[in-house]
Design a binder for these strands. Structure first.
Lengths: 342, 342
DNA sequence: CTGAAAGCGCTTACAG
DNA sequence: CTGAAAGCGCTTACAG
């Protein structure tokens, strides 16, 4: 391990003062004599003194580190949210510890445990929600560690959260497809236990019902496309007696794979078949045709979540904390993949 | 802040034993009586005891946390490397603290400082290298904090590193273009101070010279495409008396933007103009035509770097540490954008 | 303006 | 097998 670092005690000895004085000088405590302070500071930098945050936090009983839990960092959405979080928290003097669950609830549990042991100041989490198990998050609540959910959530926990209005986003995309003349729209979903996908499904179904459009059970693909490939879905589509004319996908990833599979078998996009995705991934604008999708204001979600956490710190001190929910307005980004009327 | 957590002392009091005994019991020290241990463990879990890692590390003089510094996490390459790092380090009982510099040397310096203060066990870093300033990394070296560079580097520091053989990757791509019949190839580069881009430039130039192909100074775009758009480059290309027939780009991102700009003005890719990128970004396979590029084995780079760090821990203990460099073999991934001969 | 002392929550060498 | 004591590196209430 690293060489022994210089300590406050070392500096004190060399300077011929007490540790108390050194500690105060380094903190710019105005009570210390100017000359003494300067002498101590010079000595500290000469000795290459690095404050020991471990000891500092232990003594102060709190840390300036916030944990951020995400399913994975290699999704543009999450890295963008994290960008927003870091911006706000760094300015407020907090460090951010990023942990990814990599789609494993087990790892998510380990990550929460690790944050708990680090005596982290607070946690910002986008829970996996692959299972309804939330004992690990309950543990944080029980320890009164400030916790904010973003993007995804365990909806009934007494925790503040900033969510995308998935229901509304889903409505926007579906209405857009209908407006473009689609009548027979397929649904590419995700696991229903996941609150997000549940809401997107509901938005889709409601709009379809309002427009008295039939939804064929066979054309609801309600799981991740990891399990059913774009090619397979395309094949099923091509076998239909009445050819479907559009698809609403709950992710951009699925939408693109379906689009490419359909192109391969000669379907013209968007002329014969319109497609919309969800979440405005970075590649959704560079593929061709570019993908119509729902933007979730990821950066803003990050800054908002971070601000809520800082606010919660204050409110808890005053014993006035009450959880609140904020819904962000999703935005329809119209691109080429859905524009049948030009 | 969080409610006061239960401590070893609290458990000891309730159990009617000393803190020493509790500490030993929780560590499964075999010297402790089985019944006592069980009683203590039951009590600990009943009190919802969470070990305080801060205190633990302070006492032990080391932490089980490793810092990972990257320019940004929203590049597939880096998130993939991080995936590899986490896999190896988590298995070895280490936590990973991810920090991003967001293209700011200033933030990189702050991040290193923060790791230093956390008394981190070691650091894995992909330095920005926008400037030649490496004082912050020198500080880590001086403190004998194990440090590994990956992907990018300050080449002359006494630090172990695992690098992509950028020179060779660049050669592969250039040779491929020549093999496909390109004679007048343009170069889309990045800032020359960056060791990576420097090497890619050298590889390109050497191969061109070996094949006695002329490189027009006007067709070397040696900076990021952020500053000169795909459209601008396309415009310059179209103005040439002898039309260039290929481009080697040091990033996929630039390659794609140029490709789209050229398509917009009617150039047929790859028939009239072949393009290769670098680093096999996730979207390079889904765009059309799909992009020929150089894969850098990002996951392997991560696992290797992590293993080197673990090894360095051991070597330092035995006072046998000597820095070493490992170069990974880049791989040419041939796709549609460059295939002029079919 | 400065210092001695206590304590944050742990671990461990030493003694019994 | 168990405990008292010291100490990791800090900060701060108290005293002067």
């Amino acid at each position: 391990m690293a060489r022994k670092h210089a300590t406050i005690h070392d500096i004190a000895k060399k300077a011929g003062v007490s540790s108390s004085t050194v500690s105060r000088a380094l903190q710019d405590n105005p009570v210390i004599n100017d000359k003494t302070r300067e002498r101590i500071k010079a000595l500290a930098s000469k000795l290459n003194y690095q404050p020991n945050v471990l000891a500092h936090n232990l003594r102060k009983g709190r840390s300036k580190m916030v944990g951020v839990l995400v399913p994975r960092i290699d999704h543009h959405f999450f890295s963008s949210v994290i960008g927003g979080i870091e911006k706000v928290l760094n300015e407020a003097g907090y460090n951010v510890l990023i942990l990814q669950a990599l789609d494993s609830v087990e790892k998510e549990v380990i990550n929460v445990q690790s944050l708990l042991e680090q005596r982290i100041a607070g946690v910002l989490a986008s829970p996996l929600a692959l299972s309804t198990d939330n004992k690990h998050y309950q543990k944080l609540v029980r320890n009164e560690t400030p916790l904010i959910f973003f993007d995804n959530t365990h909806i009934n926990m007494p925790v503040s959260m900033v969510l995308n209005d998935d229901y509304k986003g889903s409505r926007l995309a579906t209405e857009h497809l209908i407006e473009q003349g689609c009548k027979r729209i397929i649904f590419l979903g995700g696991p229903r236990e996941n609150y997000i996908y549940k809401r997107r499904f509901e938005g889709f179904m409601d709009v379809m019902a309002e427009h008295k459009l039939k939804v064929d059970e066979d054309l609801i693909f309600n799981r991740r496309l990891d399990f059913i490939s774009g090619n397979e879905v395309a094949e099923i589509i091509m076998k239909q007696k009445v050819m479907p004319d559009g698809a609403f996908s709950v992710t951009d990833h699925q939408a693109i794979h379906l689009m490419q599979a359909l192109k391969r078998v000669g379907v013209k996009i968007p002329k014969q078949f319109a497609i919309t995705g969800f979440s405005n991934a970075d590649y959704s604008s560079i593929i061709e045709p570019s993908l119509t999708t729902i933007d979730q204001h990821s950066l803003e979600m990050g800054t908002l979540a971070a601000k809520m956490l800082l606010e919660e710190f204050e409110l808890r001190k005053a014993n006035q904390f009450i959880p609140k929910k904020i819904y962000l307005n999703p935005e329809l980004v119209i691109r080429q993949s859905s524009l049948r009327k030009k």
